[in-house]
Amino acid sequence: MILRSLFLLVTFTSAHAQLPSNAERAETLLRAVNTHLYNPETRLYLETSNRKKNENPHTYLWGMCGLVQATNELESVQKGRSYMQPVINAINEYYDTKPPAPGYDSYVVREKGGDRFYDDNQWIAIAYFDAYTRTKQAVFLTRAKEIYAFMMTGFDEVSGGGLYWKEGDKTTKNTCSNGPGILVAIQMYEATRKKAYLDTALLLYRWTNRMLQAPSGLYWDAIKPMQGNKVDSALYTYNTGTMLESNVKLYTITHDKHYLEEAQRLAAASLTHFFRNGRFPASYWFNAVLLRGYEALYKIDGNRKYINAMQQDADLVWEKERDANNLVGRRADKDLLGQAGMMEIYARLARIK
């Protein structure tokens, strides 16, 4: 009996020890992306792993928004290694200098270009600000400042303020363009210490809470200004994530406990609503943005509850939703954005102690 117990213990310990770490999982995903979702001839990335079914030869910008943040997080974990540059080079192919301000098109400019979405641009700015904070390379700050200028062309006083979602489209103002807009403005303040940027962040913050926050504390998707501010009441993890992180950053800057208490309220509400039967929803990248908020809050209050929930879900993704090519997802065709989302999640979890 003793020998059998020892055998089982050794077997369990060995199997457990062989599980890849979060950092190893992130690197494995990046290798899989470079193998199955990258065209080395054009040096651009693909929308999904099914090249025959893809709408275009290359991915829309949204996938790149996820990948640039994920590779930044990987570089922060794996010191001295370079992952971002090929992604940055690819993103540069979406850059468009057309008026009223330079920004990034939704598709490769030299092929056909596309609309410019304020949120796509904001996600890139956030990644570049994070890279600037980490590396102090001026090019990241320069491009992020440029994106701030572009995003503010999407602001007006219709419906009392707020940023539109897409350039030239006055039909919708979304949490997904105002939440990250707050973060970009805060990061501008952190980089420059110019109060005008903090004022902008607070302006957008108050408007988003007034117009888009549900009684539960979570955030509706959008309002429709041309339809009497009709609410699109869909709830997504990433909208809570940006506002959660915004509250933490505002607390860090102002030391006003209201922001910390609100961040804690949002974290609790998000777990109650989104974490069902031990799982978050299947939109990996949306969950990565929520984890950004959880990580920011954890650094302040040390409560691992939300980190542990994300780790539980991430373990199940690796065990149950990974294919033979080491790509993840519940569908046969694996999308770039989903890979980037899980890559970021694993990299962040690797960094959190």
Results as ranks from 00 to 15, higher is better:
Met1Lys: 10
Phe12Trp: 12
Phe12Tyr: 14
Thr13Arg: 14
Gln18Leu: 13
Leu19Ile: 08
Pro20Gly: 10
Glu24Gly: 06
Glu27Ser: 13
Leu29Ile: 15
Ala32Tyr: 06
Ala32Gln: 01
Tyr38Lys: 04
Glu41Ile: 07
Arg43Tyr: 13
Tyr60Asn: 04
Leu61Val: 06
Gly63Phe: 02
Gly63His: 01
Met64Asn: 06
Cys65Asp: 11
Val68Met: 04
Ser76Gln: 14
Gln78Glu: 10
Ser82Asp: 12
Met84Tyr: 04
Pro86Phe: 15
Ile88Gln: 07
Asn89Gly: 12
Ile91Trp: 03
Asn92Ile: 03
Asn92Val: 01
Lys98Pro: 01
Pro100Val: 07
Gly103Ser: 11
Asp105Cys: 13
Val108Pro: 03
Glu111Val: 13
Ala125Thr: 00
Tyr132Trp: 11
Thr133Arg: 10
Thr133Asp: 09
Thr135Pro: 04
Lys136Tyr: 11
Leu141Ser: 05
Glu146Ser: 13
Glu146Gln: 11
Gly154Arg: 04
Gly154Val: 04
Gly154Phe: 01
Ser159Ala: 12
Lys170Ala: 10
Thr172Pro: 05
Thr172Phe: 13
Cys176Lys: 02
Gly181Met: 02
Val184Cys: 02
Ala191Val: 04
Tyr197Glu: 08
Leu203Tyr: 07
Leu204Gly: 01
Trp207Asn: 00
Gly217Ser: 11
Tyr219Glu: 03
Tyr219Cys: 00
Ile223Asn: 00
Lys230His: 05
Val231Glu: 09
Ala234Cys: 06
Gly241His: 03
Leu244Thr: 02
Leu250Phe: 14
Tyr251Phe: 14
Ile253Ala: 08
Asp256Cys: 07
Tyr259Asp: 02
Glu262Val: 13
Glu262Pro: 02
Arg265Met: 10
Arg265Asn: 03
Leu266Trp: 00
Leu271Ser: 11
Thr272Leu: 09
Asn277Gln: 11
Asn277Val: 05
Asn287Cys: 14
Ala288Lys: 07
Tyr294Phe: 15
Tyr294Ile: 06
Glu295Lys: 03
Gly302Asn: 15
Asn303Gly: 08
Tyr306Pro: 00
Ala309Thr: 00
Asp313Glu: 04
Asp315Phe: 12
Asn325His: 09
Gly329Lys: 09
Gly329Arg: 08
Asp333Leu: 10
Lys334Ile: 01
Met343Tyr: 03
Met343Asp: 09
Ala347Gln: 08
Leu349Val: 05
Ala350Ile: 11
Arg351Ala: 14
Ile352Tyr: 13
